[in-house]
Design a protein around this nucleic acid. Structure first.
Length: 211
DNA sequence: GTACTGATTTTCT
DNA sequence: GAAAATCAGTACC
């Protein structure tokens, strides 16, 4: 429902988004609650969005967390208020996106690992150079590329502005095989510390990065 | 289907 | 100088 009489390219400011209080909870809880929410990049005619189907939690007290060894230039956002994006560069090629959680200066972050593409799929296909829907956003480096999320979004609030997370579109309706239930398992790609069961994904979803 | 490897660059030690 | 919360391509079964 757009009321603008202008060009039509103005981002819809009525776009619902999760409030800061959503993120100011226990990191593990936020990681689970983010499943089913929708990550939206409002970008005029190139708006892209996807349903979050896979996340990982990183606690401040965890040796695998980027914030564990203290504040540095690249991780300073993790030490700020919850509900903001932390975007970081890995392996010389890829961007990954965290959501800052917990109370200011105390908690951790949730890594977004996979989305189910919802809007702007043609644009995603161009950016990702693949046609397979399942490969568009099924990985932390893939989803940032599909939604054109780069370091310029580091530190932005997710409650307003062009990058947002909105509540689930549909209520979870677990299928006959338990499809849509939350599966809890170990994290991926951890090279420090031992893997912890802080990875969550929606059972049976074709877009998760690993089963 | 699984397994291994190279790409590529920022950041901190 | 080494490491890094990854991915795509190749080889092989």
């Amino acid at each position: 429902m757009r009321t603008s009489t202008g060009s039509g390219n103005i981002p819809d400011v009525t776009e619902r988004s999760q409030p800061f209080s959503f993120y100011e909870q226990d990191t593990i809880l936020v990681a689970k609650n983010l499943l089913g929410c929708v990550l939206v990049h409002l970008d005029g005619d190139h708006t892209t969005a996807g349903r979050i189907v896979e996340t990982e939690a990183y606690l401040r007290t965890d040796p695998a967390a980027h914030s564990f060894h203290g504040k540095t230039r690249s991780n300073s956002v993790l030490f700020g208020p919850a509900g903001h994006a932390h975007v970081f560069f890995v392996y010389g090629m890829y961007w990954c996106m965290n959501v800052v959680t917990g109370r200011e200066g105390s908690e951790g972050a949730v890594l977004l690992r996979a989305l189910e593409p919802l809007e702007g799929i043609p644009v995603m296909r161009e950016r990702r150079r693949t046609r397979d829907i399942r490969l568009l956003c099924s990985g932390p480096g893939r989803l940032t590329r599909a939604l054109a999320i780069t370091g310029e979004f580091n530190g932005v609030p997710l409650t307003s502005g062009s990058l947002r997370i909105r509540p689930p579109d549909r209520t979870a309706t677990p299928g006959p095989e338990g499809e849509g239930e939350i599966v809890q398992t170990t994290r991926v790609g951890i090279s420090k510390a031992q893997e912890m069961p802080y990875r969550f994904y929606l059972k049976g979803n074709a877009n998760v990065s690993r089963k």
